[in-house]
Write a protein that binds this DNA or RNA. Structure first.
Lengths: 222, 222
DNA sequence: AGGCTGCTTGATGTATACAAGTTGGGTCAC
DNA sequence: GTGACCCAACTTGTATACATCAAGCAGCCT
């Protein structure tokens, strides 16, 4: 088995992604090549490559001769993203209901149980992570890697914004019960129902947009 | 108005895309940085950036320390891509039926008429181009740029493969009549019908896969 | 004879140097 | 005081040089 040697550009990309997801880097923040190079103790070359990769995935925006900034998503764009997300995640759920193996179904059930544990402990950070695992399991359960990749990509792009939304009072327990419904449909091999419920689960996040927006720090949306 | 200055890396990316779509560069072909640098009379740096961009869009595959090759899509992967394409294009059509302006609808009708002209002239190359314009109009008609971009991206990734398929005898006139049906539904504001028909239009390409595969040169699929 | 080890070669990854464009501030004219 | 213009510093885009690693081959050991 050929040993994988992650290049510095790759490590950097991951580090920057982490910073963006964690909120250390906020939308609109400038990404100066020299500073980053100095901070990570590499030259500008791998920094540039990392920035281009992030640009390709939509997390940062690079304008020629003007440098890179963490993507500031306009409000209409954000609405669009949720509209597509709902459809893609619904498709994942539909396919998962039809294609998941018994083991995958058992794992899925376990994941949602873990979500419940964190909900009971009101551990926001934990729930956030468990939520991601849950959704990932459904993406993979579609047994369509192209679909899974695309959905994951959108999930990541909306991550900096979605994060703030779970702060909304009561949203977590709502989210959890929606998860349970989706899982029940999947375990019952009811593809259409699973898709419908998942679409609603994602769309709820869009429907409460007015509330949602008000929870965002200024500068997050253009 | 600040004059846009496309960087050399951008120009290069576009040139390589063209070569890939036109078939000058075939799946599996090696992309040597030095040769490309010499051929386009630039240094390796912009070549590298172009390759990374193409890698991000999925058209080429870059493995650390092993160089870049035009992506060779495995057969299961190709099936997956068509499965997602059908869903995305259907969504575009659904939204287009609801959201297209009168002008956009008029244009769409015109585009499909142009397709018909090329079909009558049995101009394969012309039909291929007109077909692209037609689909693009529907993507944009969804009035969801995120969706349009994602769909276009998948369309491009499958382009090297789809191209060979129109050679199948009778496929063009089939394709044309499917186009007409979709347009009729859109003009009638019938979103569900438009979505169904479009999904079928795309899926036909997947359903006849056994025929399709046999038309591909060896080496195209792994 | 077959397979493994080490070198050789050539490519890619990274660093640095140079060129070109953009931004910001300061000065001058009005 | 305000506006425009110009210059300078800084940032990014590109080129080139150096370091590092992966395939290929030759020779040796088993």
């Amino acid at each position: 088995m050929p040993r994988r040697s992650p290049t510095r550009a790759d490590q950097l990309r991951r580090a920057l992604e982490e910073d963006i997801f964690a909120g250390t880097l906020k939308p609109g923040d400038r990404l100066d090549e020299q500073s980053l190079a100095h901070r990570f103790e590499v030259s500008r070359t791998p920094v540039r490559e990392a920035l281009r990769q992030l640009s390709a995935s939509g997390l940062v925006e690079v304008r020629p001769r003007q440098g890179a900034v963490v993507s500031v998503i306009t409000l209409p764009r954000l609405v669009e993203m949720f509209e597509v997300m709902a459809e893609l995640e619904a498709m994942c759920a539909r396919l998962a209901a039809r294609r998941m193996s018994d083991k995958e179904r058992a794992d899925l059930k376990r994941f949602v149980d873990e979500c419940e544990d964190f909900e009971k402990k009101t551990d926001l950070e934990g729930y956030y992570a468990a939520n991601k695992v849950f959704h990932d399991a459904i993406y993979d359960g579609s047994h369509n890697e192209v679909l899974a990749d695309m959905t994951r990509s959108l999930h990541r792009r909306t991550a900096p914004y979605r994060r703030h939304q779970l702060n909304r009072p009561g949203r977590i327990s709502e989210s959890l019960s929606e998860h349970k419904e989706v899982v029940d449909a999947i375990l019952a091999y009811d593809a259409d129902q699973a898709g419908r419920l998942m679409a609603r689960h994602v769309n709820v996040q869009g429907d409460v947009f007015t509330d949602f927006i008000s929870t965002l720090p200024t500068g997050y949306v253009a």
